[in-house]
Design a protein around this nucleic acid. Structure first.
Lengths: 236, 236
DNA sequence: GTTAACTGTTAACGGTGTTCACTCTAGGCT
DNA sequence: AGCCTAGAGTGAACACCGTTAACAGTTAAC
């Protein structure tokens, strides 16, 4: 005899589970409102008791997937001892993100394949999906800040970056544990290269030159780790 | 009294022009078959005389856009003298690609924002869009090969790349003017970083840390140019 | 025990890509 | 010149989509 809100929460979970099933089996386009209703043996309008629109349903799914990915990456790091090499943790994070994308291509495409809405819509900054994405991003930011305070790496001086870039980077310093602009620049470069690499591999934009991007990814990972003063495992 | 095929070709061009108008004004989702027909004052089934499906229409538009982008990048290079610094050409290419994306965000999203179909569908490798994408890619490949033969740059030895990666890269050597694996690796790194960077900027995945990615792009461009032994204009 | 909130239904509207049967016009062939 | 066939375009229809409105049954709360 579950209370009403419990039943409601359970139904919401079932809806999202059905949506995800459709996403996995048929890609982003397959997760339609009517299809989800069909999956649950409901009529389409019934879903409007739980989500105000189809887009809201998809957004909720996106938020869930972000949180799942975030959790997967976090407990991938916490499995080892506390005094582990932080560089190895970053290596685990990078490989964990890639692996998640490779094992969940449909979910990955939903999270990172669609263009982010323009940032001028400032009223939509509080969407649950956006907040979940922020939590996901801070996993990387916090680890990088830890690495910096653990073993500071050499970074380019402000002169070579240019004052405009330094100004923007300094503004983000609080989110990076007070790191200097040059160190934030290197961290951002790490993220940019990692993210771009994984997206290109999973979205198939690397197939035309590399049939299997694993070795290339490994080499790149070694390269970008070095820039942060880390000794990632060298290939071969 | 234009011949029948002329009239037909003209109509095809009008259809694609209308599709593009819709793409620019309303994004990828706005270029629907019925909307295109409406734009031309036709009924939807009429378009099936020119394209077998909606997807084919979009594919044709994609191919056109690839060719337009390719042409824009090519005559961006050919505007200067023949004995110009080839490094400057690569710099122009990189900036040209970014500028095209920034001035044509809807077209850019259509070309690079949707996931590429899986490569296991080998029968769809001859689609006009795919061929146009190949032509686009070879602009970069050919310029890099020219640079290599013009002023060979130092490259990592096979040992640090690993035999698996070297094997894959060597297989692509013919498309890169006979360059060694390490040189192809550096070129691929250049492309990967450039491509990833531009996609992230235009798809808004850099907004959360950099309000204006121009300075960051400039710094990155300088960095990746150096890896190819080029003296790109330094920032500031 | 009555009442109000909640959950689900059916019917319908406007939108989409697509197919079929039909008309009409213009070119090619004898 | 005259048929006649291929091509271009139309209207009606189908199956799908997201969404809304009006309605019915159940269930929790006062």
């Amino acid at each position: 005899m579950e209370s009403r809100d419990r039943r409601r929460a359970a139904t919401v979970a079932e809806i999202k589970a059905a949506a995800r099933r459709l996403l996995v089996s048929g890609g982003t386009a397959a997760v339609g409102l009517r299809a989800v209703a069909r999956e649950l043996g409901l009529t389409p309008p019934a879903l409007y008791r739980y989500f105000p629109s189809h887009e809201a349903l998809v957004s909720a799914l996106i938020a869930d997937l972000y949180d799942e990915l975030t959790a997967a990456l976090m407990d991938l790091q916490s499995t080892d001892e506390d005094d582990v090499d932080l560089g190895a943790r970053l290596y685990l994070l990078a490989n964990g993100l890639r692996d998640w994308g490779r094992t969940h291509p449909a979910e990955f495409a939903l999270l990172f394949g669609t263009a982010v809405p323009s940032p001028d819509a400032e009223d939509h900054e509080e969407t649950p999906g956006h907040q979940a994405a922020m939590r996901f991003g801070s996993v990387f930011k916090e680890l990088v800040a830890q690495i910096w305070h653990w073993k500071p790496f050499p970074y380019p001086p402000d002169e070579v970056l240019g004052s405009e870039l330094v100004a923007q980077l300094t503004q983000e310093s609080e989110h990076f544990g007070g790191m200097p602009a040059g160190a934030i620049y290197l961290s951002l470069t790490y993220w940019t290269r990692l993210y771009g690499l994984i997206c290109m591999e999973i979205f198939g934009q690397l197939h035309w030159v590399l049939p299997d991007a694993a070795a290339y990814f490994e080499a790149q990972l070694y390269e970008i780790g070095q820039a942060l003063g880390l000794d990632c495992p060298a290939p071969e």
